[in-house]
Computed example of a mutant assay.
Amino acid sequence: MKYYAKKGQMDFGESIGVIMLDTFTPFIPGDVGNANTFSFPVRYEKVEGLTVQKMMKEDDLYYESLLEAGNKLARHGVKAITGDCGYMAIFQEKLVDDLKIPVFLTSLLQLHFLKHLIGKKEKIGVITANSNLLDQRLLQTIGIDESFPIVIKGLEKEKHFHDFAIKESGFLYKQKVEEEVVHVAEKFVTEHPSMKMILLECSMLPPYAKALQDKVKLPVYDYASMINYVQSGLVQSVY
């Protein structure tokens, strides 16, 4: 096999690139922002100054910064690009058109697949960081309309989650956040008996997926499941 160098590329083997918002939060194992989450190398690129609040304004100035981050990752050889915030959905359509490699910015893209795994009268529960931001306008940017079989629950009122993920206190108590996420999920399932699976929208939630699943006994999908799926297609295993 013949290998070729790429001008300007100094490291190789990173198939997945992750565009990071400018946040002040710890990324623990399981979080998309922690490289130990994955069994393969990933490459990160932060968009300086781009916060969730600024991103939601859909300003072209911020989009250009996002696009530059994507182009930089592509120049370093990644084969596909994701993000570290589900609300990046608002830029999915534009970025996938402007970059020349696959783009999957938000875990919500999995809804298009998951809806075919359940019956017509069944639901997918979406647990999100802030339900006030995950509105129909945002969902429509990735083709999720009102006919989709989803119900949504936010974590914005949970003290420990709010402090580290929304307020950005700079620290988190993993056990406390886990207790909040599991409690919300239990209540969510009780409120919606037709719910057959759960999608965790936020990239900070995969660390709690196992504890959540152990309690509610349902399939759970998240950012990690999406990234692992895309990676499996980019780099096939030898059997």
Rank of each mutant, 00 (worst) to 15 (best):
V220T: 04
I144R: 09
S131A: 15
A5N: 12
C202I: 09
N132S: 13
I166V: 14
K94P: 01
M55D: 00
V235R: 08
K121L: 09
S65R: 00
V42A: 05
T51G: 09
Q92V: 05
D145K: 08
V42R: 01
Y87T: 10
Y239A: 09
K210D: 13
Y229N: 11
Y44G: 06
I124P: 09
G30S: 06
C202V: 13
I16P: 02
V42C: 07
K94G: 00
D98T: 00
E93K: 15
V151F: 02
V235M: 09
E64P: 00
K187S: 15
M56G: 02
Q140L: 15
V230L: 03
L200F: 14
Y44E: 03
K157G: 04
M10H: 10
M195A: 14
G13N: 12
S203I: 03
G170R: 07
S232P: 02
L111P: 08
A209Q: 07
M197T: 06
H160G: 02
E158V: 05
G8C: 12
D135Y: 14
N132H: 15
T25N: 09
M88E: 08
S65A: 14
I118M: 08
A74S: 14
Y4N: 10
D222K: 07
K123Q: 13
I142L: 06
V47E: 00
N130H: 12
F27R: 15
G8V: 06
K7V: 12
K153Y: 09
L155N: 01
V47S: 00
R137F: 04
L21V: 09
D84F: 03
H192K: 05
G77V: 04
L218G: 05
Y44N: 05
E93D: 14
N130Y: 15
M204Q: 14
Y87C: 01
L212I: 11
V216L: 04
M20T: 02
G86I: 02
E179N: 12
S39C: 05
L133I: 10
D22F: 01
G33A: 10
L218Q: 07
I127L: 10
V18C: 05
K2R: 11
